[in-house]
């Protein structure tokens, strides 16, 4: 039995720059992530109005996943690609935005559209809806980037036949600092799924 796993395709979004399979595909000098993500959305002709309703963490994860998955020639109705995402700050950035809507007791209008994003796994839902991923999914939180756990967990999902491919991602957004490192793990590919290669993509 073939026990090797490969990184089929990878994407990195940070510092207003998007790198897809080791090639820079977009960059911008605009101010702030919201404006940057809008430019990227237009550039890649994503054409999905719900994008603008998302919070920044979801926009970040959605953009990365969309660029990766578009290259894969997915089925229109049903796909088996597990989503294993993680970060450090959970949804704290949006939590703080929501907290502001309940801080003033005289002007108390909690927003349901903000509240729903105070759960980090909502970005998994957004990606699943767009790409019809009826598959295993979990969101993890770590004080520090933990490639070892995420690597082993993802490979186990394929090995135990719970899924055929895994979309793996570190998606962090907190106080304007952001980074998305995402890739697709499969039994086919050229780049071996090793800790060295994961770290290379994470730091590139």
């Amino acid at each position: 039995m073939n026990n090797n796993f490969y990184i089929k395709s990878s994407v990195s979004i940070k510092k207003h720059k998007i790198v897809l399979d080791e090639t820079e595909v977009f960059s911008s000098a605009t101010d702030g992530f919201t404006a940057f993500s809008k430019e990227a959305y237009k550039n890649f002709e994503i054409n999905y109005p719900k994008f603008f309703k998302m919070d920044n963490l979801s926009k970040l994860a959605f953009l990365g996943a969309d660029l990766l998955l578009k290259k894969q020639g997915l089925n229109a109705t049903d796909n088996d690609i597990a989503l294993i995402l993680a970060n450090k700050s959970s949804s704290l950035d949006t939590d703080a935005t929501y907290q502001e809507t309940i801080a003033d007791k005289e002007n108390y209008f909690p927003s349901p559209a903000v509240f729903v994003y105070t759960l980090p796994n909502i970005c998994i839902g957004e990606i699943s809806i767009k790409h019809k991923l009826y598959a295993e999914n979990s969101f993890f939180i770590f004080e520090d980037f933990n490639p070892k756990f995420l690597k082993e967990y993802s490979e186990f999902l394929i090995q135990s036949k719970k899924t055929t491919q895994v979309l793996w991602g570190w998606v962090e957004y907190f106080k304007k600092d952001y980074q998305a490192t995402m890739y697709l793990i499969s039994k086919e590919g050229k780049q071996v799924h090793s800790l060295e290669n994961i770290t290379k993509i994470y730091t590139q």
Partner: peptide, 30 residues
């Protein structure tokens, strides 16, 4: 500070109380 409410910090605090030497795992999936 907002970062004090971090879930990773909460897990580490519990881990430290009991003396776990391995990194705790946090699942936050609604």
């Amino acid at each position: 500070a907002i970062a004090e409410a971090n879930l990773g910090k909460l897990a580490q605090k519990i881990a430290n109380f009991f003396g776990f030497s391995t990194q705790p795992i946090v699942v936050s999936n609604a």
